[in-house]
Amino acid sequence: MVCWVGYEKEGFRGHQYVLEEGEYHDWRVWGGCDSELRSVRVIRADLKDPMLVMFEQPDEEQGDMQEENTFEVTQAIPDVEPFGYKTNTLSIQVINGAWIAYSHVDFSGHQYILEKGFYNNCADWGSEDTRICSVQPILLVRTIMERKNGL
């Protein structure tokens, strides 16, 4: 299976959408904000054993005195706050797999496709905002025929 990232604007900018193999007869099918889809690229990642680490933005009132809070993730998290992580993210390191980070809880809002590597700030993941409220890995789903053939 091949997954693609579709972008609202040319040059891989703007809203991001995960596109799997198949037909999209209407922009609402891919979850678009509108019908604009100006650039696409293949997601290049080993989709097994997903893992990422999120680094929380320190509170400005506490300055550098605050201990760095990190959040290690290996599965879908619909809301980061119950895990003691605030929604303002300083940076993200994708250790393995490909991920979708969302600006709102329950996998909603703006989505950002993250592949293996280090994202130093929100601009690196394509946002103007540090808010990340939910994350989920992109997983391969094996078909019945693949399971029967031991693939």
Rank of each mutant, 00 (worst) to 15 (best):
Q111T: 11
N88K: 14
V40D: 00
K9D: 13
V29N: 13
N149S: 15
S108C: 10
P137M: 12
L37Y: 00
W125P: 01
V80A: 02
I113D: 01
G150T: 13
Q62E: 07
I100E: 10
D79A: 12
D106A: 10
Y112E: 01
L19G: 04
R38H: 10
Y7V: 06
L151V: 14
T74E: 12
V42K: 15
G6S: 09
S91N: 06
F71Q: 05
V141S: 11
D34H: 13
Y24M: 04
L90I: 00
E61L: 09
R142C: 03
S91W: 00
L19K: 01
V135F: 08
K116N: 00
I43K: 07
L37K: 08
D49H: 14
K86G: 14
E10A: 12
R147Y: 03
I92K: 04
Q16C: 07
R131S: 11
Y7W: 09
E128N: 15
L151G: 00
Y7D: 01
D129T: 11
K48T: 12
E8I: 04
D129L: 03
D64I: 11
L114D: 04
H104I: 00
Q62W: 09
Q93S: 05
H104S: 04
L151C: 10
Y17I: 11
N121L: 08
Y119D: 03
V73A: 06
D46L: 03
E72N: 09
E20M: 12
